[in-house]
Design a protein around this nucleic acid. Sequence first.
DNA 1: CAATTATTCAATTAAACTATTGAATAATTG
DNA 2: CAATTATTCAATAGTTTAATTGAATAATTG
Lengths: 220, 220
Amino acid sequence: MEKREFKHEVYGGIGQLTKALANPHRLEIIDLLAQGEKMVEAIATEIDVSIANASQHLQVLKQARLVTIRKQGHYMFYTLANADVFAVWQALRGLSISQLPDVEKVIRDYRTGQGALKGISLNVLIGKLERDEVILLDVRPAEEYRMGHIPNALSVPPGEWGQKLEGLPTGEEVIAYCRGPFCVFADEAVAYLKSKGYRAARLDEGFPDWKIRGLPVICG
Amino acid sequence: MEKREFKHEVYGGIGQLTKALANPHRLEIIDLLAQGEKMVEAIATEIDVSIANASQHLQVLKQARLVTIRKQGHYMFYTLANADVFAVWQALRGLSISQLPDVEKVIRDYRTGQGALKGISLNVLIGKLERDEVILLDVRPAEEYRMGHIPNALSVPPGEWGQKLEGLPTGEEVIAYCRGPFCVFADEAVAYLKSKGYRAARLDEGFPDWKIRGLPVICG
DNA sequence: CAATTATTCAATTAAACTATTGAATAATTG
DNA sequence: CAATTATTCAATAGTTTAATTGAATAATTG
């Protein structure tokens, strides 16, 4: 094999893979599937496109081997193909925050608009959990909590804050985590908690970031 | 700002960034610029396209803030904008090796075709260097060596193996490194060294992987 | 077995991307 | 200042991508 032919194969292959990622909806799908498997309709609803369109995007991701399918009845459950897919998304996310002023600004504006301000990092959370200093809330939908969450996290799904937060000790610091830095459940939860007099902050990263570090995860 | 508008900004921004990466030539440029700054003509020659075409691809990368320019006379030196850009490339590279059978196969075939076989990892190299067990060769072009290399590495640029390898002690193991896993300089060097009776292997990763880990680097 | 439902396929149109070509800038040299 | 050189710009044509629509599969339910 010639040297140029070799390069053509290699960079061409990675180019195709990158093209499959290079679409806002598909990136949002990747971000969503990092939480665990989802079926087509749920994905379409979540990312706000027609089912046919979501299906087409999923075909593109499938063809690029970025997602895999589990079939059950006539439901198709899509998941990320492996941890490396999330690692790429994580790197892209990081690059966008460091290099795209707009993205960084939009996030900051949105958070301050919600009264949420600065979050804490995964490393800081780990320290606080070791010293047993915080109450940890998983504010993602119940189904995502069920499929995997951080040990000792309480499930407080969106829309159920009223009931679930009864009897939470007011003295202690509360930290809410959700899907990731672009997920707004945690911002909304923190805003609500603050309005109730709690000392609250969000985790900058999300559950998948915890998981990919090899930290312990509770399922079910 | 509405939730959907927020998502539109964020995923849209990352989509544009990813689109700028999603081209074989541009990925090859990223891989090349990870070695250090280069001017347009050198890039065009290296990736085997016309100068006008290379310039256009560089404009795309520049607009996406993936590269920056240093102007000197009428030479334009392009470099990666920051370490996060390399981190994305590194993640994509890793994903392609784990998920694309073709890419993995092409690399394996090419290496065994060169008689080079399996390389060693950066972690293993670090151990061997600590125990002073190996002779380390930087087999990239002299200019890239000059702009930054691993401490104690000898510069043995392509085409100068005959002269440079005189007087190398034959008993010790020799490890050659180059630009990265898709760079074939190291494979060719290892094949040559083996033909001369040396015990030789290549480093799987490249110099930028060493550098991004924060390990010491010699410039000049 | 017919009706329902989740998902995919096919066809269309509008938009974006790619490589090529030759001309235009702008810094340097004689 | 004219000639040279490195790089960029502009226009073009061919290809690929995206969203929409409605029809086609294929599993499930009554």
